[in-house]
Nucleic acid binder design. Structure first.
Lengths: 149, 149
DNA sequence: ACTCTTACTGATAAATATTTTCAATAAAGG
DNA sequence: CCTTTATTGAAAATATTTATCAGTAAGAGT
């Protein structure tokens, strides 16, 4: 079962990340991590809460908010802006990557290429702005949902 | 005063748009339109509410929500996702344009160029997704704020 | 193992933000 | 001036997020 193994490994890596940054490795945090690792879609705090509670019923919603924010600060997950609310998160394996999101099932593909350099330079020149960051999201349908009609 | 004139003209155009799409041209809607036209930044419903009330004190907050949504549907304004909340709107003079936003003062420059075609095609091929839309936002500092330090 | 420090937690409350409901109102066409 | 009906504002209901705080439990030191 290479899948499961990979997930276990990833979990260990994440929790090590926490420790490496001086954070404690607590049961609640583990529960949250377990709830989201391996999920290829994006999730709102409330959903994560519900799922993580199955592992650790004593979990509080506030902790979910705090943990998600923490994981985001560590670059392990990333916020995704959706029509309905912009506090959805998704896994982020690499720094500086973007998301391609399926509108039907919510599945997210991560990618890092984006040819914006030229545009950015031209715009900076034209407007006089200093452009410090960009935020890109692609929306569409994943293969599975395309087949499903 | 070409500025003011332009704004008046634009207001008329907007209200005509409403009528053209079968919507009524009401006092509350006029107040909302007046509150946002000519503002080069982005605004949250609450802010629009506050400002529009100066013109039309009887205005209700709900109407602001509804009107902003309506104007967005007509393509006259566009949502902008910010760290703090994603229900900010900004003027959108053209279809299919993007925003360059100043992090300090909130000023927004609209632009339509973006060289994503190649990236999008490559990604579509690689992932099997059908990519239907993209969502791009640039963040930086406007000339004025750069000078101000 | 045991102790100590203090980061972390959950419950509660509070603050925000958004949507729904509904009777009253006022556009706009006739 | 009527009539129709989209639109409105108030209030209530939901939903979402943040702040507070006393109790708890990681994890370092022993």
């Amino acid at each position: 079962m290479p899948e499961l193994n990979g997930e276990e490994q990833q979990k260990t890596r994440w929790l090590d990340q926490l420790k490496a940054h001086g954070y404690r490795m607590t049961r609640p945090r583990q529960a949250v991590v377990e709830a989201i690792l391996g999920d290829p879609t994006h999730w709102r705090p409330e959903q994560v809460f519900e799922r993580a509670r199955r592992t650790y019923p004593n979990l509080g919603l506030v902790t979910v908010y705090r943990t998600l924010e923490l994981l985001q600060k560590l670059g392990l997950i990333r916020r995704v802006h959706m029509e309905r609310g912009c506090r959805s998160y998704t896994l982020a394996s690499q720094e500086h990557s973007h998301q391609l999101i399926c509108r039907d099932c919510g599945r997210v593909e991560e990618f890092s290429e984006c040819d914006l350099l030229e545009t950015v330079e031209r715009l900076a020149k034209r407007t006089g702005y200093s452009i410090e960051a960009h935020w890109l999201e692609l929306l569409g349908r994943c293969p599975a949902c395309l087949v499903a009609g």
